[in-house]
Every structure is written in C-alpha cells, then in structure tokens.
C-alpha cells in the first residue's frame, strides 16, 4: 500500500463565480465550473478553486493581506512561499501571486527572512571586491551546496554569483544576480548562514555606480537641461489648461512600431 495520500478527485466540484471580461461591477457574471481542491495553509485544510494562484486562494480561504503581498505581478518579492507535496521530500518555492495551487500542497508564506545586512556609506566605496568581502566576510562560509539556487523562485544561479563575489568578479556577480527580487528564500536555506540577497544587491549597486562605464550622451543631456535648453518648452506646457494638455498628449506623434534607427518626429521643436 502506498503511503502517499491520494491526490486528485477531491469531492464535489463547485460553481465558482467570477466577473466576466470587462470587469465593471454591474456586468453579467459568467458562470464557469471549477474543480475545488484541498490545500493546507499553515497546516490547516481549505478547499479552493484549482485555477487560483496561491495568493488568490489564500484570500478565497479568508486570509486578508496586510503584509506578504506587494505588486501582485511577480517582481516585488514580498510573497515568497514555500510548500511541499504529499509523499515528496523536496521543498518547493514560488511567489504566491504567480504560482497556481496544486492539490494537497501544504504551504506557508515567508514574507521576510532575517539576514545580516551590512551598514556602509556607499559614497565611500570604490568598487574593489575586498570592500564587499570586508562587509560580508561570512560569504567565505559558502560550501557550494547549491540549496540557494535550487530554492530561488526567479531561477537565479545564486551559488554562482556568490562564487563570483568570492573570486572578486563583481561584474559577473551583478549580472548573474540581476533577476533577484530580494525575497530572501536563498538566505532561509543557507547552511553557511549567508545573506546572499543583500550581497547581491550591494554588488549590483557597486556595478551600477563604479564598474559600468558612464554614458557620455547622458552627461551631455543633463548639462543641456541644466543650461536651460528645455525651459521654454516646459514653461509653455505648464501654462496650458487641462483640456489642451490632454489633446496635445493624445494627438502626439508616436514612434511607429517598426522604425529605423534614424527616425525622428516631424516636429523637433522640443528636442
């Protein structure tokens, strides 16, 4: 006999009401048949529609988000969630706002995971790798177990960027960690007790400020602005009434979807 709890049919299917496309409150409600599945939130069983994300499912189950929810779009890192499936030793992770529920999953959210965050005066840094080493010496405790990369909901190769920091390649570390959303799950799994996500953020800041070549055209443009090049245009716009402003905005010339490198608008009055 299998020790696995049965996964699959979970009793009665229910009618789940959702507003039809269009979304206005008085719009007719489209009725679709959705299967209900059981999930365990912090150990307690709830029946939720199988099509929902974990976040929606928790709200459906009656939870109200005060924290642990941010952009609802998969980029803010506030709704990191860990879960397991019946009979499976592996730990799974996902963002609650992006991950669809699975039958019998048992989950909890980890909206925050404490990690050592170094205090530094950013302007005093110069971009040398030793500065990162001195702020986070614990990074040398990494044993390359790779639990961090395995748990990352954004598929960042966390172990690889820590390896890059160790050998002083902050540029590589910055690029590898680029998709990090600071959810902190890496730190939750680390046997070396590293705060990977803070280290990644520091090297990306250093990369942006000290290692990436400055854009010369940007400097020229800033100088032009400071010299008052757009003052006349802006003053003119500021003097307009709301309707005229809206008209100008709606009738502005758009860059065509397919345009050559040399495309410029017909009027270059404010360029």
């Amino acid at each position: 006999m299998s020790k696995r709890p049965s996964v699959g049919s979970t009793g009665e299917d229910q009618i789940f009401r959702r507003p039809s496309a269009g979304g206005a409150a008085e719009a007719p409600v489209e009725e679709i048949e959705v299967r209900m599945i059981p999930i365990y939130i912090m150990g307690k069983r709830y029946e939720v529609p199988e099509t929902l994300t974990i976040m929606k499912a928790m709200e459906y189950a009656g939870f109200q988000y005060i924290r642990g929810c941010g952009c609802r779009g998969g980029v803010c890192g506030a709704c990191a969630t860990v879960y397991r499936k019946p009979g499976d030793y592996k730990i799974y992770t996902g963002l609650a706002c992006q991950t669809v529920v699975e039958p019998e999953m048992y989950l909890t959210q980890l909206p925050f995971y404490p990690a050592n965050r170094a205090i530094y005066e950013f302007n005093e840094l110069t971009g040398k790798p030793e500065e990162v080493h001195a702020l986070y010496p614990e990074l040398f405790r990494c044993v390359a177990c790779n639990a961090c990369s395995k748990v990352c909901p954004m598929d960042v190769e966390v172990m690889d960027y820590i390896a890059a920091v160790k050998r002083g390649d902050l540029k590589a570390a910055s690029e590898i960690s680029f998709d990090c959303i600071q959810c902190g799950l890496c730190a939750s799994r680390c046997m070396g007790e590293l705060p990977q996500y803070h280290i990644g953020q520091l090297v990306r800041r250093i990369n942006g400020a000290y290692l990436t070549p400055r854009a010369e055209h940007l400097a020229t443009m800033v100088a032009n602005i400071e010299a008052g090049r757009y003052k006349e245009c802006l003053d003119k716009v500021k003097g307009l009434d709301a309707d005229t402003l809206r008209n100008i905005y709606q009738e502005r010339e758009l860059e065509p979807a397919v345009a050559g490198e040399d495309w410029t608008p017909k009027s270059n009055e404010c360029l």
Binding site: F140, C142, V143, A144, M159, D160, I162, A163, K166, R167
Partner: peptide, 13 residues
C-alpha cells in the same frame, strides 16, 4: 600549451 579556464566554477573550499 593551451589550457582553457573552466567557464563556470566555484571556490573549491
């Protein structure tokens, strides 16, 4: 002699 650095590697410990 040609010896190429491994493309991907971590600290050996």
């Amino acid at each position: 002699i040609e010896a190429t650095e491994l493309e991907r590697w971590n600290c050996c410990g």
